[in-house]
Design a protein around this nucleic acid. Structure first.
Length: 512
RNA sequence: GGUCGGUUCGUCUAGGGGUUAGGACACGUCCCUUUCACGGAUGAAACACGGGUUCGAUUCCCGUACCGACUACCA
């Protein structure tokens, strides 16, 4: 009988979660859902020094915004708690001790200075990779080299020590990766990694294996930066006697900077001209805020869709996927092997697609809210009408108000370039005539009527309307470009149109 | 330096022993149009290099180059 699929996202709370982490969480989520399994979240806070307050809450809020919250987590525990490694501290030592008992780990008493000295010595002797390994451990102060009673005495006297794994001298370590296939590493290139630190906390490596085992994790889906330590993890499963339930590994290709030069990192902040975080993050020590996709105006579904395609594709030509559709189409086999450069233009395109797919009613809400923030009240019906014909020209929801502003607020100035090129005596004639003709107008002023009346004015003056349209636009909107002008007329209403024309006629002068 | 991983248009990618190497973003041109945008059409644009294997290699193998990750009592 096969086990229930259980995957986990295991961030450490060292600051904001960056989009690479979000993508890892997303793939874990998609895989869990696809397989009818569970998606859990575990906080890996074994490094007390790097803990950043608020980071955990940030992670939670980010995932909630995106709708990919874990089913088991510190704030929603299942039966494998606690879900913070710091709270699991007492659980790890016994496994480290087991390893020592079985001859797969040992105590090491070397001070940081001694370790430095060892590395310096090795470097001076031109050893290619100075490390604490099967060779060097014979010259260090550990339970392998020290007499038994001295080790006992050191331990009893409370001396600082760490527990290191004893990597075999000559052994081919094989590991299977669902994305990369078999990867072979020789144990002689591995070092005796610290498993338990002198503060009594486990390192990532031990804690990760113990917790994945205890939490019955079946698939480890994580970033490629973990590939080099995966052989160590395989060894740990073996020495702990858990090889038969060892999870499958899938190491995800890295998210690269737009120039392809190095992986995207938290420290990139806003330097690249776009956010690297899902939502705003304010650094608790510096107080600086780095922007997030949410605050930049990205829709969660669009952002998710974009992110999913950074390294994965469904194998056909479809590009737009709801979260549910992604779950349906997802498979680890279709994840690529090579690093993926981040291209913000594609993210914008996705946002435009999702924005346009939204109902006018929903979009109207953004315009109303943004206008209200500036003290303008817009009726929902009007907002809907506005949004209906400008939504195809915007990228973000915040653009909606910016693009519709001119329909609420009459222009007080006019684009100089358009004015100098297009404002003509013909335009003045047509507009004067038009203003007069609509002043007493009482019929239905829709786009068609507005246009036929304008055509009539042009004809009455013996002027071709086409030649003056730009000037008309300028008079009404103050700008040279914009959406369909006759629709604008209809939304403004005859009275407002007339009043704007009068203002323009009084303000603009024909040059040349 | 060492270990591991990777390499198809500028970018995300499909494909895979015989293809006009396909799509999307971005870009150019044209059409639509009072402008801009949308939309439609269209164009330019890629198998890193060298050897092998083979009738045939972009695809398989080896090597080289380049890129990246890792190389802490950090994760």
């Amino acid at each position: 009988m096969s086990r229930e699929v259980r995957v986990r996202f295991a961030p450490s709370p060292t600051g904001a979660l960056h989009i690479g982490g979000v993508r890892t969480a997303l793939y874990n989520y998609l895989f869990a859902k696809k397989m009818g399994g569970k998606f859990l979240l575990r906080i890996e806070d074994t490094d007390q020094n790097r803990f950043v307050p608020g980071a955990e809450e940030y992670i939670r809020e980010s995932l909630e915004w995106l709708g990919i919250s874990p089913e088991e987590s510190p704030w929603n525990p299942g039966d494998c708690g606690p879900y913070r490694q710091s709270e699991r501290k007492p659980m790890y030592m016994q496994y480290a001790l087991d390893l020592i008992k079985n001859g797969h780990a040992y105590y090491a008493f070397d001070t940081p200075e001694e370790l430095d000295a060892m590395r310096d010595r090795l470097t001076a002797a031109r050893v290619v990779s100075p490390q604490y390994d099967s060779i060097t451990r014979t010259q260090m102060r550990n339970s392998l080299t020290l007499p038994e009673d001295e080790v006992k005495q050191l331990l009893e006297s409370g001396a600082h020590y760490v527990i290191r794994i004893k990597i075999p001298r000559k052994e081919e370590v094989r590991l299977h990766d669902m994305i990369r296939g078999w990867v072979m590493v020789h144990s002689s290139t591995l070092d005796d990694k610290v498993l338990m630190k002198s503060d009594g906390m486990p390192t990532y490596h031990l804690a990760n294996i113990v917790d994945d085992h205890l939490m019955r994790i079946t698939h480890v889906i994580r970033g490629e930066e973990w590939l080099p330590s995966a052989p160590l993890h395989v060894l740990l499963y073996r020495y702990l006697g858990w090889e038969d339930t060892m999870p499958e590994f899938a190491h995800l290709p890295l998210l690269l900077k737009p120039d392809g030069n190095g992986k995207l990192s938290k420290r990139d902040g806003d330097k690249l001209g776009f956010p690297v975080f899902p939502i705003n993050w304010t650094d608790p020590t510096t107080g600086e805020t780095a922007s997030g996709f949410r605050e930049q105006g990205y829709l969660p579904d669009a952002f998710l869709n974009f992110l999913a395609f950074l390294g994965w594709n469904p194998g056909d030509h479809r590009e737009i996927f709801s979260l549910e559709e992604m779950v349906e189409a997802f498979s680890i086999e279709r994840i690529g092997k090579s690093g993926t450069q981040f291209d913000i233009a594609k993210a914008k395109w996705y946002n435009e697609q999702y924005l346009r797919a939204k109902s006018n009613t929903e979009l109207a809400g953004f315009v109303i809210a943004d206008a209200a923030a500036e003290g303008f009240e817009i009726r929902h019906e009007k907002a809907e009408a506005i949004v209906a014909f400008i939504k195809e020209r915007v990228t973000f929801t915040a653009d909606l108000w910016r693009e519709s502003k001119f329909m609420i607020i009459a222009p007080t100035s006019f684009d100089a370039e358009t004015a100098s090129k297009k404002w003509s005596s013909d335009a003045v004639k047509v507009l004067t005539n038009y203003a007069n003709s609509i002043t007493g107008f009482t019929g239905t002023y829709d786009a068609v009527t507005a246009k036929s009346m304008l055509e009539a004015s042009a004809e009455a003056e013996g002027i071709k309307l086409g030649k003056t349209m730009q000037a008309v636009r300028l008079a009404i909107t103050g700008m040279g470009v914009g959406p369909d002008l006759m629709e604008v007329f209809a939304i403004l209403g005859a009275k407002e149109v007339a009043s704007r024309i009068e203002f323009a006629l009084a303000t603009l002068e024909v040059v040349g």
